[in-house]
Amino acid sequence: MLMVQNSYIEVGAIILFGIGFMILLLNNNMIKKIIGMNIMDTSIFLLFISIGYIHGKEAPIIVDGEINAMGYVNPIPSGLMLTGIVVAVSVTGLMLALTIKLYEKYGTIELDEIMNMRSD
């Protein structure tokens, strides 16, 4: 229990990951799948940022005078996650575009029905 208290953000991230994963796994609807994937990605971002965050420290933005480097949280994870979010967004974008295409071609975005139409 102590561990959960200490690292509730991480635990939350993992739970989120699981939720996203389950959505991805169990839904046939493409849009829902994409949502699930996004939840998954987000959970990872959360985890990453939580690693960088140290309770009681400031964001590494110089507001009033320089303080010791120990006074700031690690900025790198946040920076990285910006990239990660960009990547995730682009992937989501591509995925959505593909979903549209899918609907045009098959007339549905329910994957099981699409699979039923397999003609080979």
């Binding site: 994963f21 991805l24 796994l25 169990l26 046939n28 799948k33 994957l111 099981d112 699979m115 039923n116 397999r118």
Partner: peptide
């Protein structure tokens, strides 16, 4: 079988 060979199956497999 169809259901299993879909993406769902792939993801399931990965897990």
């Amino acid at each position: 079988n169809i259901k299993l060979s879909s993406i769902t199956f792939s993801v399931f497999l990965m897990g």
